[in-house]
Amino acid sequence: MERLKRILSRVLFPGLAIVILCVCLTAVLLVYVFAFQQEDSFIAYPSYLFSAYTLVIACIWIAGEAGSAKKNLELRIRKIAVLDRCLTDIAFRTHVSLYLSLGINVLYAAMKMVSGVCYHSVWFGTLSVYYLLLALMRFSLLRQAGRSAFGQDLISEFRKYRLCGCMLLLMNIALSGVVILVIRKNEGFAYVGYLIYVMALYAFYTIITAAVNVIRYRKYNSPVMSAAKVISLAAALVSMLSLETAMLAQFQRKENPELFRKVMTGATGSGVCLIVLGMALYMILHATRQLRKLDGSQSHTKVSKETEENK
């Protein structure tokens, strides 16, 4: 068994010199096979197998180097006190992300408001209202975070959590207005050149990260943390909707482009609105149930203390 492990280790981890040699030999073999039309010759299939093996050991080597680079980078980051605290202190990282998100939301809302006034666009004005509501929610969460540590004052945190759910309902009205405007007035985003691909990568990254964080941060038992991640998910959903309007405008179909655009935007917009509505209702109902439990437990504790004092 140990001998088999050593053989596999040598086969899969041959060292950098052999990896480079295999890559060069694979390139020569494949060029010979395809350039001289030798796909059916006796050397073709061994070349394919050897190229597959080369791909495997090259990927293993790259993954190992990437892991080493990640460890070195993490060690360097940990030497900087602020960055080290961001990596290790969840509460501090949540504070920082809330401050950054609040600043970005205010700036983005102001830009959309100015664009709406300059271009007489109700579309930009509605988006401005949406991002202002996001900023208000994040400001409310920051005020709560400044009063006590995350997870310490659950009653206050659940009240903020429920308030954010109520504000999400208002945001859903603004979001529904955005979808209706996109469909009726045929308005939307437009990006210059290849910028749309950059925005697509950013939108997919934010939606995946936000969805993962909503689930991950539930284990910290802090309603404020959970609310912050739900807000990020709501913002990411709007980014995806905005990306779709831009992509539909840039890559239009030749047949019935307006009809296709309206159907796709209406379907995606309705889905986003339903998701935001579901999150808002869950936050309101869940916070209300938890507050009733906490109020009941506090009342029971007070009665127990009064009974003991009377005795």
Rank of each mutant, 00 (worst) to 15 (best):
L233D: 00
L233F: 15
M240H: 01
G269E: 08
V198I: 13
M240Y: 01
H286L: 02
V238H: 08
S232I: 00
I231G: 08
T268F: 14
I284A: 09
F251A: 01
G271A: 11
T209R: 12
A234C: 15
S222A: 11
A203Y: 03
T206R: 13
L233Q: 02
Q252H: 05
G269S: 05
L237W: 08
V276R: 04
S242H: 06
K229W: 08
Y194H: 05
S232E: 12
V224Q: 05
L233K: 10
M247A: 15
L248M: 07
N213C: 10
P223Y: 02
E244P: 00
E258D: 13
Y282M: 11
S239L: 09
T245H: 02
K254G: 14
R216E: 09
V272M: 10
I215S: 10
I207R: 06
M247K: 07
I215L: 14
V263Q: 05
E244A: 12
Y282G: 05
P257K: 02
L281V: 15
G193M: 07
A287Y: 04
A235R: 11
Y220I: 11
I284R: 03
Y220C: 01
S222K: 04
F204C: 05
E258Q: 08
G269Y: 06
A203P: 00
K229L: 03
L277E: 10
K254P: 00
T245A: 13
Y220Q: 06
T209K: 14
M247Q: 05
T268M: 13
N213G: 00
A211L: 12
N213R: 15
E258Y: 08
C273H: 03
L248F: 02
M225T: 11
M264D: 05
E255P: 00
V212W: 10
V276M: 15
V198T: 09
I207V: 15
V238I: 15
A246E: 00
A211M: 08
P223M: 09
T209G: 03
I215C: 11
T265S: 05
S270I: 04
A227Y: 10
E255K: 00
A200N: 05
T206G: 03
L277H: 12
F204Q: 02
A280M: 08
G193D: 12
C273I: 01
L241A: 06
V214E: 01
